[in-house]
């Protein structure tokens, strides 16, 4: 019995010392916003219904293009590695400028890009059945469909229902329960 006490105490002391040193161990899990955003994008695909089933089944891969944020692209690559959706692998592509967008199913746009583009571009994307995801309310104001907005240290899913209806996207109840619905008049 006695021979166990000393190792037990030293193990506890080591854990106590390192847990004080480690930011993550002492509190609940914290993550980088772009990690949580990537996880959301990966997860969302299960709760979104495209107007055109054929469109999402077209091509060899399910393609997500990321505009202006290399971290998100990298995180998505790690998340989707060896994963399949509707029987097909994911393909993650990083894009520098809006001119390089082509043939994708989901387009994620960083706010640095959102600030510089006109609403026409997003409308065009929506009309070609691409699910547009951004990270700011400005993105929704410009007609984007889903925004992953950081608020009160959480990432909040905000859905622009009117834009989604126009272009024929619908969402499962499970997602709508978590999400906030964007209403242009109330936004600052």
């Amino acid at each position: 019995m006695r021979c166990l006490v000393l190792p037990a105490i030293s193990v506890m002391a080591v854990i106590a010392f390192f847990s004080a040193l480690t930011p993550i161990a002492t509190a609940a899990i914290t993550a980088k916003p772009d990690q949580v955003r990537a996880a959301f994008i990966y997860n969302l695909t299960n709760f979104v219904n495209w107007r055109d089933r054929e469109f999402i089944q077209a091509g060899d891969c399910f393609t997500i293009q990321v505009l202006g944020n290399r971290t998100i692209a990298r995180n998505l690559k790690l998340l989707t590695d060896n994963e399949k959706i509707w029987g097909r692998p994911f393909k993650i592509e990083y894009r520098d400028s809006p001119a390089q967008i082509n043939n994708c199913h989901i387009l994620y746009m960083d706010n640095s890009v959102t600030e510089t583009i006109s609403p026409d571009l997003i409308r065009e994307l929506n009309e070609s059945d691409i699910l547009t995801i951004g990270d700011s309310s400005l993105f929704l104001e410009k007609g984007g469909i889903i925004a992953l907005i950081e608020k009160n240290k959480r990432i909040q899913v905000v859905i622009n229902l009117s834009a989604a209806k126009k272009t024929g996207f619908s969402f499962d109840a499970q997602l709508l329960k978590v999400a906030r619905i964007f209403s242009p008049s109330k936004e600052q």
């Binding site: 509190a27 609940a28 899990i29 914290t30 993550a31 980088k32 916003p33 990690q35 949580v36 990537a38 996880a39 959301f40 990966y42 997860n43 969302l44 709760f47 995180n75 790690l78 998340l79 950081e150 240290k153 959480r154 990432i155 909040q156 899913v157 499970q174 997602l175 329960k177 978590v178």
Partner: peptide, 24 residues
């Protein structure tokens, strides 16, 4: 550790993701 966090996040439900605290 970065990747470990991601792998952890990957297995969370949408509700759980919404409650993850982020530091930026």
């Amino acid at each position: 550790t970065k990747d470990a966090t991601l792998l952890y996040l990957k297995n969370l439900s949408i509700q759980q993701l919404a409650s993850i605290e982020v530091t930026s």
